[in-house]
Each structure stands twice: as structure tokens, then as C-alpha cells.
Amino acid sequence: MTEPMYLAAFIAVTALATFLTRVTPFVFLSRHSEHPLLQHLGQFLPAAVMTLLVIIFLHRSAHWSAPTFGLDAIGPALVVVVLHLWKRHALLSIAAGTVCYMLVQQF
């Protein structure tokens, strides 16, 4: 296979595999969308997934060894939580937390 052909096939295969994972539930489950089990998942899964995304990405954003012990990411995350519970202004919470994290990481 020539290099441009390999590259074209590579991108096509990658795009296809990605789309397949996204389209699967719509192909196999869309006729059952009123089923109480799927409604249960649809209602509670987003909250659970959001929380696990927070924990996993927070874990990856932090340095867990001395001298920070993870506080370099947990601190800015707490800023987001407190600010959002207090003001409930999404952009403000996100911007403040991100600036805190950037300052901590760069200095």
C-alpha cells in the first residue's frame, strides 16, 4: 500500500470506529426509548458520569507526590465548587478555577 493510501485508509478506519461507538445505542435501542430501565439510566447516568469524569481528570491534573500532595489541583477544584454553590455563575466558576490552576502550575 502506498503511503497516501495507507493514510487515507487509516483516517477512514479511525473515523468509522469512532462513529460506530457513537451510533450503537441509537441503532439498537431507539425503539425501546420509553422503557423504564432506559429512562432510569437516561435520568441518572449523566450525573454519575459527570462525577466520575471530575474524579478521573482531577486525578490526572494533580501532582500527588511531595510537596503538593494533589493540592495543586484539588485547591482550584474547591474554588470552582465553592464559587459555583455561592454565585451559580458557570463561566465565573470555570474561569476562576482555571486561572488558579494555571497560576499554581506555572509558578
Partner: peptide, 8 residues
């Protein structure tokens, strides 16, 4: 695969 479940 699991994301689509909430958006059917």
C-alpha cells in the same frame, strides 16, 4: 456507547 442512552 453509554452516552447515547441518555439522548435517545
Amino acid at each position: 456507547v453509554f452516552y447515547g442512552l441518555s439522548l435517545l
